[in-house]
Amino acid sequence: MIQFIGTTIRYEKEQPVREFNLEVSKGEKAVFTGPSGSGKSSLLNALMGFVPLACGEIRINNQLLSPATINKIRQEISYLPQELSLDLDTVGDLIYYPFEFKNNRHLKPDNHKINEVLKLLLLDESILSKKLSEVSGGQKQRLGLASVVLLNKPIIILDEPTSALDDDSAVAVAKLIGSFKKTTVISASHDLRWIELMDTQIKL
């Protein structure tokens, strides 16, 4: 369970989130919607511990998110930002990147599992041998999602996960994410194709 309780986020010149309250149950697929600047990404960043709260709190499985607990909490989360800016060479590097961290090494998938997820995302396994510079923005976005899915964490956080995708790819991604019944998903999106397939829509 994820709880936002009186959550307020304030930057130097703006306050995008004020006294926000929400409870997301285990396995629920929730999406933040609304215009740019409404606080969608700010809430995701706060959930990851990237921005401090001005007041209020966030709890994950009844554990208060704080500087003392954030590292432990992040071990339960797979996160995909809107823009991937990793200095990597090949598609394979991107897929395996999260598994280089100590806490994820034991989760490293085999080739069969990787190819299975790529197929569900409408990607051919031959893409693994390509340079990242050779793949499109939409392919790169789906590869990032593949990496997130392969981590198999109980919570997934996605910022605009379908922004570069065509209709077929966007639906494939949403259906794959929705198939993980026990996985809690919180996302931010402008994309109606994604929004309509989520359990809960929160307009900001």
Rank of each mutant, 00 (worst) to 15 (best):
A54N: 13
L158I: 01
G56Q: 01
T183S: 05
G92Q: 13
I157S: 02
G6C: 05
T8P: 09
E57K: 13
I157M: 03
D110S: 03
E23G: 02
D166K: 03
K72R: 13
T8M: 08
P67M: 02
I127W: 12
T7H: 05
I157H: 00
K140W: 08
L118Y: 08
S163T: 12
L53S: 00
E125R: 10
S25L: 14
L121G: 09
K175Y: 07
N71I: 01
Y79L: 01
E160I: 07
P154G: 05
Y97I: 02
V24C: 03
T200E: 02
A54E: 15
L204M: 15
M198A: 05
A188D: 05
K102L: 10
V117I: 15
T183F: 06
K29P: 02
D159N: 11
P67I: 04
L123G: 11
S189A: 10
K119T: 12
K153Y: 06
T184H: 02
R10E: 14
E160T: 09
K113P: 01
G27P: 14
T162H: 06
K140C: 12
L53C: 00
A46K: 00
E12I: 06
H106T: 10
L150V: 05
A54G: 07
K131H: 15
N71E: 13
T200Q: 05
L197H: 07
Q139E: 15
I195V: 13
K102T: 07
H112K: 09
V91M: 08
T183R: 10
F99P: 04
E19M: 12
S36W: 02
L132T: 11
D93H: 08
N61E: 15
N115E: 15
R59N: 04
L47K: 00
K130E: 05
L128S: 03
P16Q: 06
I73Q: 00
I9Q: 05
I186W: 01
